[in-house]
Design a binder for these strands. Structure first.
Lengths: 232, 232
DNA sequence: TGCCATACTTACGTCGCCGTAGGTTACGGG
DNA sequence: CCCGTAACCTACGGCGACGTAAGTATGGCA
C-alpha cells in the first residue's frame, strides 16, 4: 500500500530536501498541474482503483493520496466520489460502445459477429480496468434505467443491430433482446475468465467464441478460423 | 426503510404495551429462539439483504434489526459480517451446483444442455436472492482460488461435464473451460436480464438459449421447442 | 423451587471516511 | 515588482459502522 508514483502523467514530487540543511524545508515542493491535467490524472487513478477495489472499497482520500494531492482537490473537480465515478463509467461505456460499433463494417452477419467479438476482446485487453468496472454492479443510480449491471445495459445497446438482422431474416424482432443478452454475456464472462488465465491467444478465443455463437455446439468446427484479418 | 417484520420465521414482537397502564412494561417481550433457529433466520435475512444491497452496503446492525435482535447475536453466531456472508455464499453455491448437476440425467448432449439451462433458470427463479449474490463480486478472499467472479467459479465446475463430452466427440478438451465460461456467461446474463423484464416465460427463454447454444446463429430455429418435458 | 446455561441486551470505544470552512502558496500578466 | 487568480493545503465536524465488555432475562432440569 504505497502511495507514491502516479501512473501516467507528470507528478514528480520534487522533494528537494538536502538532508539537514539550514535551508528552510518550505514544505516538500509539489508539482502544480493545470486544472485539466489534474482532472485527467484523477480520472486515471480513479479508474484504476475502482477497478481493483470497487466503488465502495475505494476512498476519496486514497485517490487523492495516489495523485499526490489532498482530498479537497477531488471535491473541487468532481464534487465527490460519485461524481468521479460517474465520469469514469460514462467514458468507459462510450469507449466500449464506440469500439464495438465502430468495428462493424461487414455486410455478412457472420463477419459482423466476428468483428464484434474481436472488438470486445480488444477492449477488454486494452482497457482492462474499464472492463472490470463495467462488469461490476453500479451502486450509483443508473443513468439509463433500472439495470442490474452495466454490461446488461451495454447489451441492450446491441439489440438494435441484432434486431435489424432478425427482421431481415424473418425472425421475431422481439426476441432480439434475449439473444443480445445471451451473446454479450457469453463474450463478457469469457473475457473476464480470459483475463485471469490468459491461456489461449486473443485471436483464438475470438475464433472459438464465433464458432460457438455461429455454428452452435451441434456444428462446432474443430479448428475454427476467423474470416477477416485484423491487426494485432 | 422500516425495520419491523421478519420475512420467514417467527418473530412476533409481543410488545404488550397497553397505553399508560400501571402494568410494568417489562421490556417488550421477545421471542426466544433456539440457537439453530436464530442462525437460520439470520442466514435468511442476510441473504436477502446482501442480494439487494451488496456486501459492503449491508450493515450488521441492519441484519440484526431485521431479525428483531441486537448486534452481538450476529457476532455470536458468525463472528462478524464476513462469517455470515461466507456461509450464505457457500450454501448458495452448493445449492446451485447441486441443482444443475442433479438435473443432468440425459445421454444425448443436446438434452443435457437443455436440462442444464432449465435447471439454471429454475434456480434463478426460485432462489433469486442467491443468484443475485453470486452474480456480484465477492469482496471476501475467494475460497477456491483467485476468481474474478463467483459465477466464473461456477463455470469452472461445469468444465468437467463439457470436457467429457469434448473428449468423446474428438475435440480438444483443453478448450472445455473456454466453452464452459461462454455457455455459463450466456445463461447467467440472460437470466439476470430476465429477472428484470420477465417478458418471455421461463420455458421459452430456455428454449431460445438452447436454440442458440446448439444450433448457433447460423441455424437458428424460428420456433424452438424443448425436447424434454418438465414440471412447472 | 431454585439454579445455571443459554439466549439476548445496553452501552461504549474506535476507526475510517465523507464532505467543508477557511487559509496558503505559486504563477503569470500588467 | 506586485497582485489577483487558480491550484492546493491543514484541520475539523460528524456520521455510520464494526466489534466488544459486561450485565440481564428465561426456561428447562435437578
Amino acid at each position: 500500500m504505497e502511495d507514491v508514483a502516479t501512473d501516467s502523467s507528470t507528478t514528480r514530487t520534487t522533494s528537494g530536501n538536502g538532508s539537514a540543511g539550514t535551508e528552510r524545508p518550505r514544505r516538500t515542493r509539489r508539482t502544480r498541474m493545470t486544472g485539466a491535467e489534474r482532472r485527467e490524472q484523477l480520472l486515471d487513478i480513479g479508474r484504476t482503483l475502482f477497478a481493483e477495489k470497487g466503488f465502495e472499497g475505494t476512498s476519496v482520500e486514497e485517490i487523492a493520496a495516489k495523485a499526490g494531492v489532498s482530498k479537497p482537490v477531488v471535491y473541487e473537480h468532481f464534487g465527490g466520489k460519485e461524481g468521479l465515478y460517474a465520469v469514469v463509467v460514462d467514458r468507459e461505456m462510450r469507449s466500449l460502445l464506440d469500439g464495438v460499433t465502430g468495428a462493424l463494417t461487414a455486410g455478412h452477419p457472420r463477419e459482423l459477429l466476428e468483428q464484434a467479438a474481436f472488438a470486445l476482446l480488444d477492449y477488454i485487453e486494452k482497457y482492462t480496468d474499464g472492463f472490470r468496472i463495467l462488469v461490476r454492479d453500479s451502486p450509483v443510480a443508473q443513468s439509463t434505467g433500472t439495470f442490474a449491471s452495466l454490461i446488461s445495459d451495454i447489451a441492450t445497446q446491441v439489440e438494435d443491430i441484432l434486431g435489424l438482422e432478425f427482421k431481415a431474416r424473418g425472425f421475431d424482432p422481439k426476441l432480439a433482446p434475449l439473444y443480445a443478452q445471451a451473446l454479450v454475456g457469453m463474450v463478457a464472462l469469457t473475457g473476464q475468465w480470459w483475463l485471469d488465465v490468459r491461456k489461449p491467444k486473443k485471436a483464438e478465443v475470438a475464433a472459438h467464441l464465433v464458432n460457438l455463437a455461429w455454428h452452435g455446439l451441434d456444428g462446432l468446427e474443430q479448428k475454427p478460423r476467423l474470416i477477416g484479418h485484423r491487426k494485432s
